[in-house]
Design a protein around this nucleic acid. Structure first.
Lengths: 346, 346
DNA sequence: TTGAAAGCGATACCAG
DNA sequence: CTGGTATCGCTTTCAA
């Protein structure tokens, strides 16, 4: 890859060819005052002739900024493909990043230890100017450590209460309330929940919402089993739930993948969905519209979440945002499809 | 974000505290010869005390290397989430990148024009040291322009024939042959194909494979309609195919999403799958195992493809790989599930 | 073995 | 308005 590797023109080349000082070239190129119109025009034209593109490395060193933000995803590379959140979230981030000249550095780590290393590298290196804190854990050490490193960050759905960095939230509680109340209204009395791993704040939030609504409705809120946000986890959770008596007639799942797993297990056991078992998911992934029956779910907006959080992060980096800023995207909505409905035996 | 923003220790701080020259510190830190063991030990210990992490910006400028590679994804941010290839591919890339100290910069562009801009920025800027060329088009301009820019690249499944950069391929032809021959063997005589947009080489390759096998089998290879690799595209393609006479009894689709669309349309029309229509997809996405009936498909390995192509790209960047290098990952395999089988009326 | 100094490419300050 | 120069943090000669 070296044959005709002539290095790209630098600002010196431009200045030289235009017969001006480097500083003038810099000012002209950056639309800064202090250069006569005529000189500016000449510099610009030379730059164009040469095909000059400012080196991001030089700029970066000088500006003490990487013009890059980091996203660390803690997930086994093997299941990365099954995660629709990732792509949509990245898509949203890019919408904000691109126009402002920033790039996104992605790091995939298979476990918490590797993820910590990932953050440390990105932050210690100053390879990025800020990071996204996503899928937060209860007592997550990352926010504190980013603060200690002096690394700007934004928290995505950090749960209720204070957070040391700006946050972006999408409330899903109201939609959960609506979904569960609806289930009760159409006759369900035994409603179960397949939670996500309770080390995640979003898993806890959904569980809390479930409990509080059921209590409110005078129903038993204790029919809960912990899944792992995967299809397989849902499939297996279904077996546990369907073994209890009285058997639940409806299940609210912490995410869609789990819900599809539950639904398929029920179907595989010869049950009818929703007649024998109603299933409701959470996320609103496209797949929910492709399964049969189609999945009733609570639809979130990963893309908007990405877009907003990137906006906040850049504002924070550039100093125009207080640390306690809070943003939110429109609440998650209940999307009624066909996996939930009245129980056959009321 | 500025209160106690003391800048992180630089190599000068380390050298100063250790009472040595910067160059000695550099040598010690990089495991280079020219420093006595004793001095080295002292430097290392000071570096540790100070929590020194080499600045990636300085290193980058000096080394004339960004230690970053770029992936440009041409896709509407809205459907990024539906694309399981992206996540898995990125996961694979990271497996090779991380250990070698490189990062991945991702750029999402909604159309070809934006994607071209994306490449130009990454390349012109020298923000990245190399790029992945994925989802190649027939007569794709990107390889040539990367060559012109002197930007290392690798082509992922660039189709048959020469390619100006190293390539990584996963052959799927044999599996397609096997799948179609199997359909014929179990009695299908009218087999259709829902192609991908034919501007993509991989769409053309799959179509060519389809045609050649059907010709070989003495069947009519002309029952082809063009989809767009989406679920909706498949759903609509099904309507077109089911209107022709004689009606096909089996459909091979260019990807899984399309196949699920075709299958669902058939089910929605009250047909039985596979009794009335057999459906075979391509990709092997997890969802194929979640639909009912489960999807028979040809399973590819996006993660392995990512891992291999990143390996090649880094080798190319670091100069240890010829431009005509070719790598491949194990061929795609036919995965028989339940969406395809003997036709009910033979 | 060690240290001094020259880049890398850009920005920013300060004289002229 | 313009040009020179220091600076960012590191690597890499090149002398001592």
């Amino acid at each position: 890859m070296t044959p005709e590797a002539q290095r790209p023109p630098s600002i010196r080349d431009v200045a030289g060819r235009a017969g001006v000082a480097i500083s003038s070239a810099s000012a002209a190129l950056n639309d800064k005052p202090g250069v006569s119109d005529e000189t500016r025009a000449r510099i610009l034209s030379v730059a164009k002739d040469l095909g000059y593109v400012p080196s991001w490395r030089g700029r970066s060193l000088s500006a003490k900024r990487a013009f890059t933000v980091g996203l660390v995803v803690e997930r086994d590379p093997d299941v990365m493909g099954d995660d629709p959140f990732f792509g949509a979230f990245v898509g949203g981030i890019e919408e904000s990043l691109g126009p402002r000249g920033y790039a996104l550095a992605v790091r995939v780590s298979r476990d918490a230890r590797a993820a910590a290393t990932g953050y440390r590298e990105l932050a210690g290196n100053r390879r990025v100017d800020g990071v996204f804190l996503n899928e937060l854990l209860v007592d997550d050490p990352r926010p504190e450590s980013m603060l200690r490193w002096g690394m700007p960050a934004v928290g995505i759905n950090p749960g209720p209460g204070e957070f040391v960095f700006p946050t972006v939230r999408q409330d899903g509680t109201k939609a959960i309330v609506e979904a569960l109340r609806w289930l009760a209204r159409i006759g369900h009395r035994t409603i179960a929940h397949v939670a996500g791993p309770l080390r995640y704040v979003h898993a806890v939030e959904r569980l809390e919402a479930f409990r509080s609504v059921l209590l409110d409705l005078g129903l038993d809120p204790s029919l809960v089993t912990e899944g792992d946000f995967t299809y397989q986890g849902g499939y297996e959770a279904a077996d546990r739930l369907l073994a209890v008596s009285p058997r639940p007639t409806a299940v609210f799942c912490a995410n869609d993948l789990t819900a599809v797993g539950v639904m398929n297990r029920a179907l595989d056991l010869g049950m009818k969905v929703p007649a024998d078992l109603s299933v409701i998911g959470y996320d609103g992934i496209a797949m929910g519209g492709y399964t049969r029956p189609t999945l009733t779910t609570i639809k979130t907006s990963p893309r908007a979440l990405g877009r907003q959080s990137a906006r906040l992060l850049l504002d924070l980096i550039e100093g125009s945002l207080p640390m306690d800023a809070q943003a939110s995207v429109p609440e998650a909505r209940l999307v009624v499809r066909s996996s939930a409905g009245p129980a056959s035996t009321i």
